[in-house]
């Protein structure tokens, strides 16, 4: 008995000391995220509700003025359009490559290229599309020689659909990278279904779509967020002339004061809230789909 109690006391003390030491290992992450992520976010929130005489919601009410509401609307429409088109096109491309419809050698090539293209964004991407679909871009001129005048027909690279076409250059590859793991999985399901006598239509209706629903939802959310926070591509293409939330925040920051700082804070908080909503859906979809695959 005595032996046990004697040996236990130092052990417990060691355990407690170890817990204290253990906290130290987390300290860098805690301090860093506090200083560079949490405090600035809290600061923005504080700024967004700081009135002259105590807390106020005026700035959030101001967000409902036509110009700012429109910025949110355009931002959300742009993100939704690029997310939906990007997800569908990415799914088709991924299935063409991993589903067996195209030669196998294309698979690693497509994945590497997707890794590159999904990271090829911002200023250089805007330049590339200006050379392609700008007023004197190669494709614009080529189509003009076929008597198809894009710009006379109302298209502009520097407007909404121009941005959509450009964003898809990183959205589609991102979708390919996100969905290929789920499709790899689908491949074995298809063989099982076909062996049991299912038609391709039955396979898609009863097997593939139910399996893909959640991964697709999660990927859609990531694509939406990917485009919602984008600044550089839109700024370079439109010279800051498009009414998007990030562009408005950028105007405030770079000193073209068109509205009050507190209003910019409120806009930023509004962006974060939308991103949080997107992210929550993503996490739920992701967790459920992982469970389903396991």
């Amino acid at each position: 008995m005595t032996e046990v109690s004697v040996s236990r006391a130092p052990l417990l003390a060691a355990g407690r000391r170890q817990q204290m030491w253990g906290a130290l290992w987390f300290l860098p992450l805690m301090i860093f995220s506090l200083i560079f992520l949490f405090l600035p976010s809290i600061g923005l929130f504080a700024g967004s509700v700081a009135g002259r005489h105590g807390p106020t919601l005026t700035y959030y009410a101001d967000l409902f003025q036509a110009q700012y509401l429109d910025a949110y609307k355009v931002s959300i429409e742009l993100s939704a359009a690029t997310a939906v088109i990007g997800a569908l096109a990415g799914l088709l491309l991924a299935w063409a490559v991993v589903g067996g419809g195209l030669p196998r050698v294309l698979r690693p090539l497509t994945l590497t290229f997707s890794g590159v293209a999904s990271n090829f964004a911002g200023i250089p991407l805007a330049f590339a599309f200006t050379s392609t679909l700008g007023p004197v871009g190669l494709v614009t001129l080529f189509l003009k020689s076929l008597h198809l005048n894009l710009y006379a027909a109302g298209f502009s690279l520097f407007g909404f659909w121009g941005l959509v076409v450009t964003y898809l250059y990183f959205q589609i590859p991102l979708m390919v990278l996100l969905i290929v793991p789920a499709l790899d999985h689908l491949h074995t399901w298809r063989e099982a279904a076909m062996n049991l006598g299912a038609t391709p239509l039955q396979f898609w209706r009863y097997v593939a779509l139910p399996i893909l629903r959640l991964p697709m939802l999660g990927a859609l959310m990531l694509l939406f967020g990917n485009s919602f926070g984008a600044y550089a591509t839109a700024y370079a293409l439109t010279s800051g002339m498009i009414n998007l939330v990030p562009i408005l925040i950028g105007q405030e920051l770079s000193g073209n004061v068109v509205f009050s700082p507190n209003l910019a804070d409120a806009m930023a908080v509004g962006m974060v809230l939308i991103m949080v909503a997107i992210f929550v859906v993503y996490i739920v979809a992701n967790r459920r789909s992982v469970r389903w695959q396991a």
Binding site: L44, F228, L253
Partner: peptide, 24 residues
Amino acid sequence: IEFVSILPFVVPPIVLVLGLVRLY
């Protein structure tokens, strides 16, 4: 730790830099 590490996703760069400039 995973949660904190992926949290930057919800704060777009332009919002992050606004927050940093405002505060510091």
